[in-house]
Structures are given as C-alpha cells and as structure tokens.
Write a protein that binds this DNA or RNA. Structure first.
Length: 294
DNA sequence: GGTAGACCTGGACGC
DNA sequence: GCGTCCAGGTCTACC
C-alpha cells in the first residue's frame, strides 16, 4: 500500500537522505533501485513493516510491505513525518546563508533537514555508538544490535527492526558486550534501555519539548555516554541548531579553513561559527569545506 | 572548572 | 601469526 505525504517547500528527499551517515545505519538502507530510502519499522501494534520512501510531487511517497489499518497508516505517516522533518521551516536560515558563499547552495539544495530515526531512543543509542570509534565500527556495532535483538520482517528474516528499549533492557550487560562488541558502551546502552523501558525516562517527550536549548542539553548530558559532542549531535537531530558537535573532524576542518592547519581546540570551532547565533550548528553542518586558494 | 588517565575495539604496521 | 601502536569521545578521580 502507498501513502503520499506533503512536505513544506523547498524539500529534497536526496538532501535528507544524505544529510549525515544515518542512512548507512540499519535498519535504514538505500532502496535497491537507488530511488529512495528504505527502512524496517515496528508499529505500536507490534507489526513489522518494510517501507520504501521515494520522492513525489511536493513531498514523498511511502510504500509499505504490509496492508495497514487506518490507525496504523496514521502512525506510519507520523513516523515518516518525524524521520524526514517534512514540516520543518528553514526560511530564516536560508535568508542569512544566502550572504555566505560557503552556504550559498543550501536553499537551492533544500538542505537543513537531518535524517532521524523513528524514536529518539534509537538516535541516542546510535549517537553513543559514534563516539570514540571509527565510522566502520559504528556501522558494525549498530548492525550487531539490529541483527541480534531486532524483530524480523515476516516475509524476509534478513530485514529486522532496531531493538526496542524493552528488548535491550532484558539483555544482560555481558551478553550485550559479547554479542555486539559495544565495549565499554555496553553498560551505557543497557542503563539507557532499562530507564526508558521502566518509564523512569521519557526520551520521546523531548522530541517536541519546549525546554530552552541549554536545559535540553543538560537533560541529554545526564545520559551516561552522552558528552558534549553527542549532546550537540542530538540537539541538531531535535532541530536545535545553536550547538556544534565538535569532534576530531570538526577540529581538522576548522584548522584547515582558518588556522593554516595549526592545531585548534573546541574554543576555535565555537568562535568560527559564533556569528551564526541560533543557526551556528547548521552553518557548521552545511559548510562547504572544499579547499580554496586564499 | 580544568586536566590526566582509563575505557574498548579493530585496523595498521613491524617483526 | 603475534605484539604494539593508534584513533575515536566520555567518564571519573583528582587538583
């Protein structure tokens, strides 16, 4: 079955898919025909569906592997809306970005939306998996989580969902460590899953929280395994752009762009984008780092 | 508040 | 094949 969902313009499915590396992390994958984004999702009823999202006039088309009841269609529509940020408005950013050559293409490419997982729980876990490791290891750890603990699609056992907090909360830390190679992150993920599964922590409520960004950041920093970089990355996912996820790559790029390759720290990265105010995270994210002769 | 060292895995490298 | 080194953020203890 198919759903057609409108998006606030300008919108580019290609820009969302390639906004960061999330599309390489299961259960995301590129559609086999390279037409769009595929995902294996679990609905509230427990039904597992495989969806393929492709571009449509003024929005996206969502093809589901299963026929869905009306309530399930509404849930799926809400899920895709969140994942792609269909209604997000970047007019303010485009206005200021148009005056900066390094960001001049942002509006034309409809950049700004950042691909999200269906749940904030999944995005927090994935973000923790990006810390203190190489990208290839992040992909491997995430694949292990999905492969070991996700629910399979009824028609294709190879396609699995991202495990729920309940599923991960029921796994012993040492089992998690041994089967997924999460290393020292295992107790962090286990504790997060336990807190969410027990109801002690309502992560999903943060998706639409009206808390000021500093308070939201404080909440995220309260999660074990989430430090400055991870919190800033999650704030970007939550649509708060006044923080920069400073990692080793950011230090290298800022060093090359403004300091002639000399070593720089967090302060220099922050200073480089300070003038962008509420948009500084997005300005950093979309900056064209292509070397130019100065 | 700032800093040093430990945490853990896997890839690269030398022998 | 084995041992060593290194990269990658966060946590904790200490000052």
């Amino acid at each position: 079955m198919e759903l057609v969902l409108p998006a606030r313009q300008p919108f580019s499915l290609h820009s969302v898919i390639h906004s960061h590396g999330w599309m390489q992390l299961a259960p995301f994958r590129l559609d086999e025909d390279n037409r769009g984004l595929a995902h294996t999702a679990r609905l509230g009823t427990g039904k597992v569906v495989d969806i393929i999202i492709t571009a449509a006039p003024d929005g996206v088309s969502v093809q589901s592997s299963e026929s869905l009841k009306e309530s399930e269609q509404e849930e799926l529509a809400g899920m895709v809306d969140w994942m792609l940020g269909l209604d997000q408005d970047f007019a303010g950013f485009y206005g200021v970005a148009s005056r900066e050559p390094r960001l001049a293409q942002a509006a034309a490419r409809a950049q700004g939306r950042i691909l999200r997982s269906p749940t904030l729980f999944e995005d927090v876990v994935k973000t923790i998996l990006t810390t203190n490791t190489l990208w290839a290891a992040t992909i491997r750890m995430n694949n292990n989580l999905v492969e070991q603990f996700g629910d399979p699609l009824s028609t294709d056992q190879q396609r699995k969902t991202f495990p729920t907090p309940q599923q991960l909360a029921s796994v012993e830390v040492e089992t998690l460590r041994a089967q997924t190679r999460l290393g020292y992150r295992s107790p962090y993920i286990a504790e997060l899953a336990r807190r969410v599964a027990s109801g002690e922590l309502d992560l999903e409520a943060l998706k639409h929280s009206d808390l000021p960004t500093p308070e939201l950041r404080k909440r995220l920093l309260g999660l074990k395994g989430v430090g400055d970089y991870a919190a800033a990355n999650l704030l970007m996912i939550l649509g708060r752009y006044d923080a920069i996820p400073v990692d080793s790559w950011a230090l290298k790029m800022v060093s090359n762009e403004w300091y002639g390759g000399a070593p720089v720290g967090r302060a220099e990265v922050e200073a480089a984008f300070e003038g962008w105010g509420e948009w500084k995270g997005l300005a950093y994210w979309l900056w064209d780092w292509t070397p130019v002769n100065r």
